[in-house]
Write a protein that binds this DNA or RNA. Structure first.
Lengths: 209, 209
DNA sequence: TTATATTGACTGACTGGTCAGTCAGTTTTA
DNA sequence: TAAAACTGACTGACCAGTCAGTCAATATAA
């Protein structure tokens, strides 16, 4: 009995973990759909199939929940990108190509475009979230890309003259593609496959030695 | 007396025009600072030095005011860009360079970064504003750039193989620079001059024949 | 010119609705 | 049975939009 308590969590502990996840998932859906301010915790509770008060047993405030939602959804992507990069074998050109392909995949899956808009539009109004987002996501991605470029320069694949400090120039079109698809698809549909191809080709051309 | 009535607006008519502008300017400041949802019309009224009710003598609703604010601030920029382009003499390379320089200037003046964030983050949640924004601003800018590229291809300056449909790839880094400056300057300051130089050089390299 | 009437611009207290966060009471688990 | 988890009605703060009343500008009359 004692041992089991440690090995397999009790029914209560399982329940608690499940509740927590249910709330985060419901929050993800609602925040993505409505934006931070317009999201009602009542709706989050309904979607999670619980009472509103329960949310406050797991999170201090609406803002804390929001942070958890972002954390939970972005960390796995970041970690995968990092471990993928660490294990990659091939030329810098191949690596950069595959990194950006994976980035496009990540940016357009599930409700990721909504999350991008959320963070760019509202999240950054909360200094804590901007800080967190930069520290945990952006700078990690920047470092990955800078690493690839550095290797490319050393191997003579890429020119030296591009200031790798400005990785935003390389990444921005991918971010914008997510926002576009979300908001301007009706006015002017975007073929993401072709767009990503054109973008990656453009990057390689701009970096080639 | 009769003649004067027509030539110079009466005191009342002058007042009305001034009020309208005061409200739009106050709205611009508040919306840029707080975002659409968080902006209180009470604050707009205080900033404009009028009573809250007066706003409703000039605008139907908060949303209408928001649209006017965007209109008033973006139309002049678009019109200037168009007439500048129409009169430009020089190579496509020169034209593209100067177009993007002017774009950076416009994007970083006054409260323009805030307006960019506003439109990207919240404005696009209102279909009407997304529609308006695409119709009046984005597509105009896209057409200008596509025109320059077309000329460049015809003159043998630019390669044919870049799909000029995807102007987003060219523009995105400039948009992102505005957002970055606004939100991530503290975490990682951005030298806009150098960034713009690197961006423009990157574009030309990517387009060169 | 001066007095009076009319217009319409303006005001801000008020209303109706919304919603984050609370807590007394209920249900579930151990 | 005790403890922990859960609930949803409730509260207090907030705010877009309204409207009855005020006041300044203009028109008309004396």
């Amino acid at each position: 009995m004692e041992a089991q308590k440690v090995l397999t969590p009790s029914k209560r502990e399982q329940q608690k973990e499940a509740r927590r996840n249910a709330i985060i998932n419901a929050g993800y859906q609602e925040f993505a759909l409505q934006g931070f301010t317009a999201t009602k915790l009542d709706d989050v509770a309904v979607r999670a199939g619980i009472g509103k008060g329960t949310i406050y047993l797991y999170f201090d405030s609406k803002e804390t929940l929001f942070q958890e939602v972002i954390r939970k959804n972005l960390f796995p992507i970041r970690d995968e990108a990092q471990s993928y990069a660490a294990e990659f074998k091939g030329t810098a050109t191949e690596h950069l190509t595959s990194h950006f392909r994976r980035m496009y995949q990540a940016l357009h899956q599930d409700r990721m475009p909504e999350l991008v808009q959320l963070v760019m539009g509202e999240g950054l109004r909360f200094p804590e979230i901007a800080d967190f987002f930069f520290r945990e996501i952006i700078s990690s991605n920047q470092e990955l890309i800078q690493g690839i470029i550095k290797k490319g320069v050393e191997d003579g694949e890429f020119r030296e003259s591009f200031n790798a400090e400005f990785t935003q120039i390389l990444i921005a079109p991918a971010m914008v593609s997510a926002l576009w698809r979300l908001q301007l698809e009706k006015q002017s549909p975007l073929d993401i496959e072709a767009y990503a191809d054109a973008h990656i080709e453009f990057i390689l051309r701009g970096l080639k030695a």
